[in-house]
Structures are given as C-alpha cells and as structure tokens.
Design a protein around this nucleic acid. Structure first.
Lengths: 234, 234
DNA sequence: GTCTATAGCTTGATAGAC
DNA sequence: GTCTATCAAGCTATAGAC
C-alpha cells in the first residue's frame, strides 16, 4: 500500500529510528542513568528536543528501545520452538533441543545481526541483573515466550518437580545474559584462549551445560533431600 | 594497641564507614550513574563535601565500596577452598564440593550477613554484567581467588580441555551473579513458588546444576566434535 | 574533622519560531 | 518535522571558615 510505504519512509520515521539506534547503543554501554538525552541526540545527529517530540521523555525512549526488537524477537522465538517440537520424534524434543531453540535465535542475532542487535542484547544483559529494572522489564517483554519454553521443558522432564525447573531456568538465564554483556572477562581469565565475542562457542556449549544441569536437578532432587545425598553421583 | 583502637573508633573513621555504607546501598539499587554524591551524603547523614575529603571523588568512592568487602571476602574464600581440599580424600574434592566451597561464602553472607553484604552482592551482580565496569572490576578484585578455584577444578577434572573449564566457569559466574541481584523475576515467573531472596534454595541447587554442566562439557567435548554427536546422552 | 558557600557545569524538559 | 532558546533544578568539586 502506498500510504504505508510512504509512512515508513517519511523523514520523521527515519529520525525516530535513528534516535532509537543511538539510544540503544549508548544505553547498552553505560545504562539508563549513564547516558544523557543530549548525548543520544548528538549520536543520532538530531536535536535533543526530538526525544520529547517522538517519545515523550528519556524514560519512554528507554522503554521504546526495549520494545522495538522484543516484538520481532518473540515471534521468531515462538516459531523456532514450534519448529523444534514439530521436528521431534514421538517422545518430543530433548532438553538440549529445547534449550538450543530457546537460546540460538538470541546468540545468532547478537553475533550476526549487526551492531544494533549486539547493543540490544548487551542492554538486556544489564537490565536483567538490575534490581531496579530487572523484574518489571523482563516480565513485561519476555514472559510469554519464557512460559512457552517452560512448558516444552516440562514435557521433556515430566518427573521433575516444578521448583527445580524454575531454578534451572534461573541459572540458564544468568548464564545467557552474562554472555550477552561481552565484558571481556573470560578473555582476561583465560589469557585469550576464550573470547567473550565468540558466541558460537557459547552456542556449542550452553545447551549441553544447561541441559545437564536441568537433568541433574530433575533427578537428584525429585524426592527433595539435602545436598549431601546426591553429591558426586558418578 | 591503643593507637590502632583509637584510630578505628575516631569520629572520622566512623563517618567514612557510614559514607561507604550509604554508597553501597544506593549504588546497589541504581548503579553508579543513578546515584548522586548528595544522595549518598543525605543517606549517611553527612555533608556532601566529605565524599571528596575521604575518597577524593565519586568514582574513588565507588572503588572503595567494592574494595572494602573484597579484601575480607577473598581471605574467607581462600580459607574455605583450602579447607575443602584438606577435608577431601586422596582423590581430592569432587567438583560439587569445590563449587560449593566457591559459592557458599557468598550466598551465606548475602543471606545472613546483614543489609551491607546484601547490597554488596547486588552491586557485584550489576557490575559483573556491565560492559563498562565488568572486566576491569572483577579482574581487579577477584582474579586470584578465581584462578585458585580453577586450579582445584582442573585437578578434579584432569581430562577436561581448558576451554571447557573456562566456559563452564563463565556459566557458573552468570548464574551466581543473577542470583545476587534478587530481582524478584523468579517469584513472578513461578507464581510465588520460588523466591529470589531464598538463597539457601540456590545453595542447595547451584553446585549440583553447575557440576553437572562442568562434567558434561568436560566429557562430551573432550575430543571437540559438534553439538550433534553428544546430544541426548541418556 | 566537619561544614558553609559557591563556582561552574550539565541535566531533562518545553515554549514557540520556522 | 525540526530547531533555537531557555528554564529551573541538579550536578561534582573545591576553597576556605571554624
């Protein structure tokens, strides 16, 4: 439709997107309070007043940055999970398959999607660990896909107590979002052997690591018990 | 010694500690840029100028907050790791034991050490995931104890490729620092079944979960190979 | 050791010209 | 749709009184 195409390519929409790109980049580097409206406008080569014009204020711009890619991402991830279940045999997908379906769309876009996606996930990494924003933002933008993921896992591990699945997801989430931050910490620690930016290394390992954890908690704690009676299982 | 005791109880030292307490609390809530020197002074019931007097500036105060407990903590954790190795049989401690020795002093203090320790770990949770501070701060304050931990693990998993141990540590670190943030996300997700503040629940589960992950990567990737050939091991 | 006073900027937001 | 001009408020840091 002519009007839609015209509306998307209007000067105003381009400016709005440029501001979002600039905000995304800077918020990812220094967090919400570490960035000023003026710095964002400068990065976008736009006027500071336009932040108020398009978004209402700094806080609303922050929300808009998080929302923009969340919508696209949730659709992609939902498709990926459904695909994963369709591809599986009669027993359904393995825990490894489900975790890979859950994390691969994120790792792939962070590594190959360009600087916008990279910044976006770095921002998610910070927001997730923030007492101020963590719960509200993550629940707001990602609850449905996480619940969908949990259902799949529940089917793959039918004997696992619910708490164990939630705690396992918590550990998965922590491992994943630290990965997004790409701080260079593992580079320093490993003397350069491993690189924070090497997300395909994470893609190869995270599903195995996490699936083993899920299975361990599902099995060793299925009739509760202390840490003692399930230690050193091999 | 009289002079030492006198120096520790001098009015100035008390004020300094009160400023550190206030800064620790506020930095943990809103990060470095989210807090002003004035807000810290107000919280400490002290004059804003004293921040410059005792620390030099806001940035140096931030460093001082991180340093204060890191020193004590590193000694405690070193002792705990050595104890763990002394208590072990001739084969050395299990991976589970080592991970527990590494994480328990942190989880225990966050849960039972009072509000200062709680804030400190929440701050660590944010700093770790920050592209701006993560690498520099964590390496600066925690490198020796992490290297010591890696050595213990290496002895417990002698056939594991080095990269696998580093990536496993990375996942452990992510799971741990998200726990410190106590954002309430797992409360919302689980409908109240699990609680972010329940660190003893994490203490019971994290060593099992993470040890299973370490073992999985150590074994399934010991002769490299793709994700495919090691999936669904049971 | 503590505080007052203030210098010198920067902040987020907005009213109104174009 | 964009920008200039400007506001009141808040910022860090410091010089110097007590």
């Amino acid at each position: 439709m002519d009007t839609l195409e015209a509306s998307l390519s209007r000067k105003g929409e381009r400016t709005r997107q440029t501001l979002l790109d600039a905000a995304e980049k800077l918020f990812a580097e220094k967090g919400f309070y570490g960035v000023t409206v003026r710095a964002i406008a400068r990065e976008a080569d736009a006027d500071p007043a336009l932040v108020a014009y398009y978004f209402g204020g700094k806080r609303e711009l922050f929300d808009a940055v998080l929302l923009r890619r969340a919508e696209r991402l949730n659709q992609i991830r939902l498709d990926r999970l459904e695909q994963c279940e369709r591809d599986a045999g009669p027993d359904g997908p393995s825990v490894e398959d489900i975790i890979e379906a859950f994390t691969e769309p994120l790792l792939d876009r962070s590594e190959n999607g360009g600087p916008g996606w990279k910044s976006y996930f770095a921002l998610i990494g910070q927001v997730t660990n923030s007492p101020e924003w963590g719960e509200a933002m993550m629940s707001k933008y990602f609850d449905p896909i996480v619940r969908r993921f949990m259902e799949s896992i529940r089917r793959a591990l039918p004997d696992a107590p619910e708490e164990e699945l939630f705690w396992s997801y918590h550990f998965l989430s922590g491992a994943l979002v630290l990965t997004f931050a790409e701080t260079g910490r593992i580079d320093a620690l490993s003397g350069g052997m491993c690189k924070s930016t090497d997300l395909s290394a994470v893609h190869k390992r995270l599903p195995l690591f996490v699936a083993a954890g899920f299975r361990r908690l599902a099995k060793d704690r299925s009739d509760s018990g202390s840490i003692e009676n399930s230690k050193a299982a091999e």
